[in-house]
């Protein structure tokens, strides 16, 4: 269960006069996502979707509001009064509030994330990128019960094969194509078998056919966890309306900057779905119309 309560994020920027200015990246977003749901976020470019996702993951502190995952606070909001500020500074004097710990590897929440620019490590081979993530996840387990290096390699190969990267295990990211790098990031996120997967345009750089296959793979993985005590949550940012409707239980439409929730469209269609189901097409049309309207409105403003 993820709960976001009136999240806002202001970013200070330098404006064209060289003076300090402000920018509202996310404005008052509240949403609660129960376990086992797939939610898509869709909205025009630059409206604050990635920022919102990073706040969810605890990689940026919100200026206002709070995120709770299963009731546990993700990051405390930034201080707003002078006194809070001093207190905050004292507490985080030597270590950033984002840090997991100084010496012990331990994720704060069971999240995996795929970044818009993949963020796979260029200095590790494909397989080592995955083993790196796996190793961090097992750091909390007692040494004797930890999987061996060989088992982790096997698991990494398994997930690489799953995204169609077998044969590229020992390549470095610079030797992979953009789409392959994206699939590597996907394999890395899936391999840790997290409870929550946050994806920032995970399939943007692959061809249409591979994309459909990856979508179905993702749905299959998700369905496998459906029987578990805590089925996984997937939050996915996409620009592809068809993808959003086909995959999700709910499509959240963000308004143009500052990003806030414009509409939430539930997709109550039984799985497995057919891409050409008239009900799906109808929802797609509605979202298209909505986005179209936003874009046209914005043009009128700017003229």
């Amino acid at each position: 269960m993820i709960e976001a309560r009136s999240i806002s994020k202001f970013i200070s920027v330098v404006n064209e006069n060289g003076l300090a200015g402000g920018l509202t990246a996310v404005l008052n977003v509240s949403i609660s996502i129960p376990d086992g749901k797939i939610v898509s976020i869709i909205g025009p470019s630059g409206c604050g979707k990635s920022t919102f996702l990073e706040i969810l993951a605890g990689l940026q502190a919100p200026t206002e509001g709070e995120i709770r995952i299963d009731g546990k606070l993700v990051l405390e909001p930034l201080p707003s009064t002078r006194k809070e500020m001093e207190d905050y500074k004292r507490r985080y004097r030597f270590i950033s509030p984002l840090a997991n710990g100084v010496f012990t590897d331990h994720p704060k929440h069971d999240i995996a994330m795929i970044f818009q620019d993949y963020a796979v490590f260029p200095w590790m081979t494909a397989i080592n990128n995955i083993v790196f993530a796996l190793r961090l996840r097992v750091a909390g387990i007692k040494r004797r019960e930890r999987p061996t290096h060989k088992e982790m390699l096997e698991k990494a190969s398994y997930y690489l094969a799953k995204v169609g990267l077998s044969g590229s295990e020992y390549k470095y990211p610079s030797q992979l194509s953009g789409g392959m790098r994206q699939r590597l990031a996907l394999a890395r996120a899936l391999s840790v078998e997290p409870k929550i997967i946050l994806m920032d345009e995970p399939f943007a750089a692959v061809d249409a056919l591979s994309r459909e296959k990856l979508q179905d793979d993702l749905l299959r993985l998700w369905a496998e966890t459906k029987e578990n005590a805590t089925p996984i949550i997937i939050i996915l940012i996409t620009h592809d309306v068809q993808e959003a409707v086909y995959l999700s239980d709910e499509v959240v439409v963000f308004s143009p900057s500052p990003g806030s929730i414009r509409n939430r469209i539930p997709v109550d269609i039984e799985r497995p779905r057919a891409r050409t189901d008239p009900a799906i097409i109808e929802i797609q049309e509605r979202i298209f119309a909505m986005l179209q309207y936003d874009i046209n409105q914005e043009n009128e403003y700017s003229i």
């Binding site: 990689l59 270590i95 590897d105 995996a112 994330m113 970044f115 961090l136």
Partner: peptide, 14 residues
């Protein structure tokens, strides 16, 4: 970006 992606997986500062 690299720091963020390692932190999500639980990397300590060390």
């Amino acid at each position: 970006r690299y720091l963020a992606s390692a932190r999500v997986f639980g990397a300590s500062e060390f």
